[in-house]
Amino acid sequence: MTGIFVPEPVVQVRNLGKVYGPFSDETISRTGSSFGSARDAVIGSIVAAWDISFDVQPGEALGIVGESGSGKSTVLRCIAGDVEATTGDIRLANVDEGKVNILDFDASRRRRLRIDQLSVVYQDPAEGLSLGITAGGNIADPLTAAGWRNYSAIRTRAKELLNRTEVPIDRIDDLVRTFSGGMRQRVQIARALANNPGVILLDEPTTGLDASVASGVLDLIRSLLEELNIAAIVVSHDFRVIEMLTERCLVMHHGRIVENTLTDQLLEDPQHPYSQELIAAART
């Protein structure tokens, strides 16, 4: 133990696991990175994620990188509550002082966390927004859920957020359906920040956007993370995203963490054979 001050984590995940189908200890030991598959060849169950543990400090962005099928999105969705975890312990500093496992909460309490404790920005903005209502309306949603009842206060806050996410304010009353992909993503980010959550989860936030649009959104996310001192978990298969946004990251392969390291160390000195493969492929 050194005297270096590392703040208490905002998010603490221990032994998070998600298995689809029945399983035993053997199932776990027959799957994973060294077995080349998350699927148990004997039973057929899929160990989508297993033994996932990490911390996220306040104001820090932690990356989770891996190819599709690695389990990284599963981990994010388990934390978000979109998917029910099989096992694990997740604590949030702002919920019961981090003393309680949120996986023990019932569905409605988990849902309430999503109002002002934990927000998600999905790869597909349509998943995090209602396309048939206005940009302002999409932001009014979490605000009213948190108890906001003053129309002009809601409008002011919505304009503030749209401004901060560089969406033209005169589009506040346009249906989100009429926005381009990059703009939709910005509205999704604005909505996610509405109630100042302590934690934000970003799932492939720029995948699917044109390169120039993506870099704008990435810049935005980065400056927001710096400015707001929010804890973030960024899931991506794209190393440029991880490099731009994170200081530390995890590499996942077939449902397991194979490397947990500093981001620059991963990019320049990857240790695990799979990490080396990934980095080499990214460099070409």
């Binding site: 849902r111 206005t134 302002g136 309306g137 009014a140 949603d141 009213t144 859920a145 129309y151």
Partner: peptide
């Protein structure tokens, strides 16, 4: 959870 009702009033 009436937030969608509120949103429809807002809209």
């Amino acid at each position: 959870d009436y937030s969608r009702m509120w949103v429809s009033l807002y809209e």
